[in-house]
Nucleic acid binder design. Structure first.
Length: 152
DNA sequence: GCCAACGTTGGC
DNA sequence: GCCAACGTTGGC
């Protein structure tokens, strides 16, 4: 099992929105960055686990844990002209963008803030904390995962 | 709103 | 292939 961190803006799709989804499960769609796409397509696997991170908000930080419940598959929102994630450059016969399905495992009892993560020993190498890092899908090493859970 | 950092685009 | 211009991300 591998560990990941998935970012979302709570104003667009926050953890409470996921909690309201049928079976607390949804396709993690709308990722439009090639590096993140490659990870969704090739690296995230059913059975993996990820932190749910809120970005661009009052209190950026980790708010929950999700299970990855599918392998990567084409992002259908890219094919839908009515979707805000529509991309005319993605063809169903040759999909450009990918998703995985995620299911909410649990909300954390409290938000583990970005500021708190920055100050934590043992997380110096967490990709989330690297300068200029902007990917919405990021790996988390097992030791980092445990360190973060220990902060809750 | 500002700005640093990075990705993408497109002319050459 | 280079690189300037532009767009986006995201913390502050």
């Amino acid at each position: 099992m591998n560990f990941w961190l998935l970012k979302s803006e709570p104003g667009a799709f926050g953890i409470d929105a996921l909690a309201k989804c049928r079976r607390r499960t949804t396709a993690w769609d709308g990722v439009r960055n090639f590096q993140a796409r490659n990870m969704l397509r090739d690296d995230l696997r059913r059975g993996d686990r990820a932190f749910f991170y809120h970005s661009s908000c009052d209190e950026p930080g980790i708010v929950g844990v999700v299970d990855i419940v599918s392998n990567g598959y084409p992002d259908r929102s890219a094919f839908d002209p009515g979707s805000k994630h529509f991309d005319a450059g993605s063809d169903p016969a040759n999909p450009k963008w990918y998703v995985v399905d995620v299911r909410l495992r649990r909300k954390l009892k409290r938000t583990i803030t970005l500021a708190e993560l920055r100050g934590q020993r043992g997380l110096q190498d967490l990709p989330l904390l690297k300068r200029g890092q902007r990917l919405s899908v990021l790996p988390v090493m097992p030791g980092q995962w445990q360190t973060i859970l220990g902060l809750e």
